[in-house]
C-alpha cells in the first residue's frame, strides 16, 4: 500500500527531519508535564489517594514541594536534563536510579532480539525470494504469515509453559540467579539462560515481519534488469543475491522498521512482565500496579525519548544507505 521509494520517505530535508523529531520529543515531554496537571483536585491526593503507600506528613510535604508546578515547562525540562526525575515512595528510591537500573536489561533484551530477528529475517527473506514459487518458499511464507498473526502475549505464555514448566530447561523469572554463579563465565551463562525465553518470544514476534518485508522487496528487486545483467556476466549467485540485490532490498526493510518500532515496543513491555524480566517493562508494570505516578510518568517519557532517538537514527541511516537520497542532494 505504498508508492515508489520517493513517496515512502516522509521527511524531505535534513532540517525537516531534525525539526520533526525535536517537535515530537517536545510534544512527548509536554504531554507528560501537562497531563498530571489536568487531574481533578490536588496532585498528591489524586495520586496517592488510590495508592498502596501511606505517606508521612514529612514525605507528603516533600512530595508537594517536588510536584507542585513551579517554574513551568522550562523548569520541568531543566529537571529532566539534570536527572532530577522525582522520587518514588513505593520503592523509596529516586526514579532515575530505578530507571537506569532497569534500562540495561531492556536494552540487552530488545537489542539482541532486534539484531537476531533482523539478521535471520533478512537472510531467510532473501533466500525465499530467490527460490520464488518453490514449495519451500510457499511453505515459509505461509508459516510466517501465521506466525505474524500470533501476538507476543500468546507466544510468551506458550514458550513459558513448554520450556520453563514442562521441560524445565529455562528459569521462569528473573535475569540472573540471586547470590548465583561465581566467576565471570558462570555469570554470563546464567544471564544467557535467563535471557533465552523472553528473547525467543521477541524473536518469534519480530522475525516474521522482517521476513515478509524482505521477501517482498526482494521479489521486486530480482525482477530488475540489472540483476539479469549480473547473471549474464556470469557472477556467482551468492554474489548477485547479497551484493547486488539484497542491498536494495534492505532499503524498505530499514524504512519500515522505524514505523514498526513504536508498535513493537508494546510487545516488549508485555514479554518482560510474562517472564518477570527486571527491565523497564516490569518496572512500569509494578509502578502501574502500585499507582506510583512519578515512576509511570518518567518511565513513559524516557522510553518514548529513547524510541524517538532510535527512530531518528534509523531515518538518518536510511538517508545514508539509499543512494537515491544521498546523491540527490
Amino acid at each position: 500500500m505504498q508508492g515508489g521509494a520517493k513517496e515512502k520517505r516522509f521527511f524531505r530535508s535534513d532540517l525537516g527531519l531534525v525539526a520533526t523529531f525535536c517537535l515530537a520529543a517536545l510534544v512527548m515531554s509536554w504531554i507528560s508535564y501537562a497531563l498530571p496537571r489536568f487531574l481533578p483536585g490536588d496532585f498528591v491526593t489524586a495520586t496517592y489517594g488510590a495508592s498502596q503507600v501511606t505517606l508521612t506528613a514529612q514525605e507528603e510535604a516533600a512530595l508537594r514541594a517536588d510536584q507542585e508546578p513551579q517554574g513551568g515547562f522550562g523548569h520541568y525540562l531543566w529537571r529532566l536534563a539534570r536527572f532530577d526525575w522525582g522520587y518514588s515512595y513505593v520503592f523509596n528510591t529516586p526514579v532515575s536510579v530505578l530507571f537506569l537500573g532497569a534500562l540495561p536489561w531492556t536494552l540487552l533484551l530488545m537489542g539482541s532480539a532486534h539484531i537476531i530477528s533482523m539478521v535471520i529475517g533478512f537472510v531467510a527473506g532473501v533466500e525465499a525470494a530467490w527460490r520464488r514459487n518453490s514449495a519451500i518458499e510457499k511453505g515459509m511464507v505461509g508459516g510466517m504469515t501465521v506466525l505474524e498473526g500470533i501476538p507476543e502475549i500468546c507466544t510468551g505464555v506458550i514458550l513459558l509453559f513448554v520450556f520453563a514448566l514442562q521441560l524445565q530447561w529455562f528459569p521462569t523469572a528473573g535475569a540472573e540467579t540471586a547470590y548465583g554463579e561465581p566467576g565471570f563465565l558462570g555469570h554470563m551463562a546464567d544471564v544467557v539462560r535467563h535471557l533465552a525465553l523472553p528473547l525467543g518470544t521477541l524473536v518469534l514476534a519480530y522475525f516474521p515481519g522482517n521476513f515478509l518485508l524482505t521477501r517482498n522487496s526482494m521479489v521486486m528487486v530480482i525482477m530488475a534488469d540489472y540483476i539479469n545483467t549480473a547473471r549474464a556476466k556470469g557472477l556467482p549467485p551468492l554474489r548477485i543475491r547479497y551484493v547486488h540485490a539484497a542491498r536494495n532490498a534492505l532499503l524498505p526493510v530499514v524504512n519500515r522498521f522505524g514505523i514498526r518500532l513504536a508498535f513493537m515496543i508494546t510487545g516488549a513491555l508485555v514479554v518482560e512482565r510474562i517472564n518477570s524480566y527486571p527491565g523497564v517493562g516490569t518496572l512500569l508494570y509494578n509502578a502501574i500496579a502500585a499507582r506510583d505516578l512519578p515512576v509511570i510518568q518518567m518511565v513513559v517519557l524516557m522510553s518514548s525519548l529513547i524510541i524517538l532517538a532510535v527512530f531518528f537514527a534509523l531515518e538518518w541511516a536510511y538517508r545514508i544507505i539509499d543512494p537515491r537520497i544521498r546523491h540527490a542532494r
Binding site: F10, T20, F21, A24, M28, F263, R291, I296
Partner: peptide, 18 residues
C-alpha cells in the same frame, strides 16, 4: 510525521494510568 514518530502505547499508558 510527529505522530508517526511518537510511540502510541506510551501516551495511552500515561492517559490510562492518570
Amino acid at each position: 510525521d510527529v505522530l508517526l514518530a511518537t510511540p502510541a502505547i506510551m501516551i495511552l499508558i500515561l492517559v490510562a494510568a492518570l
